[in-house]
Design a protein around this nucleic acid. Structure first.
Ligand SMILES: [Mn+2]
Ligand SMILES: [Mn+2]
Ligand SMILES: [Mn+2]
Ligand SMILES: [Mn+2]
Lengths: 217, 217
DNA sequence: AAATATTTTTAGATTAGACTAAATACTATG
DNA sequence: CATAGTATTTAGTCTAATCTAAAAATATTT
């Protein structure tokens, strides 16, 4: 049985390792968790004793199979709760993260599985991220960043890379959300900004915005 | 902002003070919480510093107004979650307590209030206990114990005093639940056992059972 | 009211999780 | 490849929440 804190570390390591093929560095976790590197080192040792990570001094960590499973169980709960908050409790997609951060630690298999059933086995959360099923398996779309979409090729927004409230509310104002059809009309060579058609409206977005939107062609 | 542990103490003090007019004793909380009396003394001091309880050495504690409010906010969440688990997630009334014990600590006013709306403003939890509304006000039935019901007077089960899984499942087997109509047919003077009509069936229950069932005449 | 029993508090220790400051190991640059 | 710079670890401290053992206060019984 894990504590709330070890669970957050495992999840952070899991997410960090999605973006690197090698091991996860101490400072990268320190930044994610909001703790000092020395605290992270301590935790790496604890997790290593529990065989949830492989840790060698100065070499960072990687999750063991058991560590991945534990992390996925948290991710599963996190995304199911986010889905619930949006679909039944009138939360907007930019408000759910902080609450799901707490709810993900509730220990009850029955609760998790019944919640999943109640939501009718959702496959993706409100941000387009895949939800691990009971067997911890998840199928992610073959998504690419909007920056990589060729001109005049039809695509649909299926997710966001930046989950910050600021970015999500910005997208709300631009009327871009999961499922919005997107077409790139023009790419400005000078600064890589894009003229796009999103739904019914035409608008301009910066490169920074484009590289935080996932689409499926 | 309270910690999980201080919240559990406040709730325990709140519940204990429902059964006594004087202050709440150290050992009674120690038993409820499952901690040693020395730990409880420590906590009493902490809560006293935060002005959530009035504490005098060797004299037990009583909640301040602020302490009562904090306790009621936890009770509100606990009972709303219990209701949700039973009404939407297929939990039986004997399974909800342990999970609600965790869920009651989730910090989000919006979550609590939206959950309440989603459940359509329930006034009582699955055990018949009243749910404080947003203003922390609750109206409890004018209930009495089944031991006090006169012979042949119509009544309805509205709650239970013992919330243990054992007792609740025992009632399930006897087909007694919240809302079940009850009539006392005969009271055995020898051991105070009762012959009752519960719903359609006639059955015998012990005094101990009867003094854990609340009814409204 | 004294003696005894029970309850409560104090003193001192432990553990998890965090921190700061200092030491050590890697890495990148010249 | 030496050295400066960065990342990481170690050493020592702190706080919250717990514990045990012993002391002190209160309650009960003779
Ligand atoms: Mn979390
Ligand atoms: Mn999400
Ligand atoms: Mn609790
Ligand atoms: Mn209840």
């Amino acid at each position: 049985m894990q504590t709330l804190s070890t669970e957050d570390y495992l999840k952070a390591i899991y997410h960090a390792s999605q973006f690197t093929s090698s091991t996860v560095a101490t400072t990268s976790i320190a930044n994610k968790i909001g703790a000092k590197p020395s605290s992270v080192t301590d935790m790496f040792k604890k997790l290593s004793e529990q065989k949830l990570v492989k840790y060698e001094k100065y070499q960072g960590v990687s999750l063991t199979n058991e560590g991945v499973k534990t992390a996925l169980r948290i991710v599963r709960k996190h995304r199911l709760w986010e889905s619930f908050l949006v679909s039944h409790l009138n939360f907007n997609w930019d408000e759910v993260h902080q609450v799901a951060e707490q709810l993900e630690h509730i220990q009850s298999e029955k609760l998790t599985n019944e919640l999943e059933r109640f939501l009718d086995y959702p496959t993706h959360d409100p941000h387009g991220d895949p939800i691990p099923n009971r067997a911890l398996f998840m199928k992610s779309y073959n998504k690419i960043l909007l920056t990589e979409l060729p001109l005049n090729k039809e695509a649909v927004c299926v997710g966001v890379k930046d989950n910050s409230s600021d970015f999500l509310r910005y997208l709300d104002r631009r009327q871009i959300g999961i499922g919005t059809p997107i077409l790139v009309l023009h790419r400005e060579d000078f600064d890589q900004s894009l003229h796009i058609q999103a739904g019914n409206s035409t608008l301009m977005i910066t490169q920074k915005t484009a590289e935080n939107i996932y689409i499926k062609p």
